[in-house]
């Protein structure tokens, strides 16, 4: 592992630590109709797009464990959901490209799909204990939440693209 790679890993580590804190402390304040945004999931989408599948899977698992412990969830549930989310999001990574770029349309489609998958895992584990119909849960906490996450991802993408002067971003220095 080169110094450059260590530096990149550290930056991502710090970013995800901040995202976990953001998720636990501030995300409940931004809940819309009971749907809480998942900043860690959005971060994973970017990590998968820029660094590849394996970093996304490992980060998804580790942040998932931390979130489970901190948020009082069933330990392993977020870890499982985020591991699979990172794995799925990693399909958009194209290792043969010299400079990894985010293709906005594909990225948004991945964001929506991965978010639906991520939410479905939670939904399937919880809907039995909740006194709400599956259809209602699907619309609010699966598709609704996916829309919310995609929206956040789009905003982040827009901000990054503005800073990088173009929608395509260099992943590797």
């Amino acid at each position: 592992m080169t110094r450059l790679q260590i530096g990149r890993a550290t930056r991502w580590g710090v970013l995800f630590a901040a995202l976990v804190i953001l998720q636990v402390v501030f995300a409940p304040l931004l809940a819309l109709w009971g749907v809480t945004p998942d900043f860690v999931l959005v971060g994973l989408l970017f990590l998968a797009a820029l660094e590849g599948r394996l970093p996304a899977v490992l980060t998804g698992f580790s942040t998932g464990i931390v979130l489970d412990i901190a948020a009082g969830e069933v330990i392993g549930l977020s870890a499982l959901a985020k591991t699979l989310a990172g794995f799925t999001a990693g399909f958009q990574f194209q290792p043969h490209l010299e400079g990894q770029r985010i293709r906005p349309v594909i990225f948004m489609l991945y964001a929506a799909g991965v978010s639906v998958l991520h939410n479905l895992i939670f939904l399937l584990s919880y809907f039995r204990s909740l006194n709400i119909s599956l259809l209602s849960l699907l619309f609010s906490h699966c598709f609704g939440a996916a829309l919310y996450h995609t929206f956040i991802a789009a905003i982040v993408l827009l901000i990054i693209s503005r800073r990088k002067q173009g929608i395509a971003m260099e992943a590797r220095p």
Binding site: R53, L54, V57, L58, F61, G64, I65, D68, V74, I75, G76, L77, A79, L80, T83, L84, F87, G90
Partner: peptide, 21 residues
């Protein structure tokens, strides 16, 4: 198959953690 194997392993660990929550 590295990515698939690691992902599977992590999923198994996650499921084991869920079981021993």
């Amino acid at each position: 198959l590295r990515d698939y194997l690691i992902t599977s392993l992590l999923c198994v660990i996650s499921l084991a953690l869920i079981a021993s929550s």
